[in-house]
């Protein structure tokens, strides 16, 4: 069955996330990450950071709210009943600290059929309040029997 591919190249409006110390602490605790730079502003500053630092994979906290509308868009038309998160890639730029405002914008990179399954690939680009890139994400969702 041919996949709908009109959404390839589509861009969605970005969302902005305000990073806070308590949220970083909550994320680091869930992952069992122990470095005090994620918990204590004094330790973070001593290590050369401007404030409590987000662990790299904290990126899900600020990027997921941005990517969700793209994944849910009826124009993309994924069948959620048979969708799985197939692959994920992140590239990090500047470190994210408490107080940062991160704006993430998603785009549909490709929609392709392989061996009867649909591969839906999205890209997200996140920049901080100074315009520096902090993250590029490539999100691959696979719809079985698309």
């Amino acid at each position: 069955m041919a996949l709908k591919t009109e959404a390839v190249g589509k861009e969605w409006e970005g969302t902005t996330y305000q990073v806070g110390r308590e949220k970083i602490k909550e994320y680091a605790t869930a992952l069992g990450i122990e470095n005090p730079v994620h918990f204590d502003v004094g330790a973070a500053r001593e290590a050369g950071f401007r404030d409590v630092v987000a662990p790299p994979m904290f990126c899900v906290v600020y990027a997921l709210p941005a990517i969700a509308p793209a994944i849910l868009d009826p124009e993309v038309g994924m069948n959620f009943a048979t969708m799985v998160h197939g692959a994920q890639e992140f590239e990090w730029g500047d470190v994210v600290c408490s107080g940062d405002e991160i704006t993430t914008a998603p785009r549909c990179l490709s929609i392709k059929e392989k061996l009867g399954n649909g591969f839906y690939v999205f890209e997200s680009t996140s920049v901080n309040q100074d315009g520096a890139q902090v993250l590029r994400g490539v999100w691959t969702n696979i719809v079985r029997g698309a």
């Binding site: 470095n35 994620h38 790299p56 994979m57 692959a87 994920q88 992140f90």
Partner: peptide
């Protein structure tokens, strides 16, 4: 936390 520059998984 500044060491990891890229991570890709399946």
């Amino acid at each position: 936390p500044a060491a990891l520059k890229r991570l890709s998984v399946q």
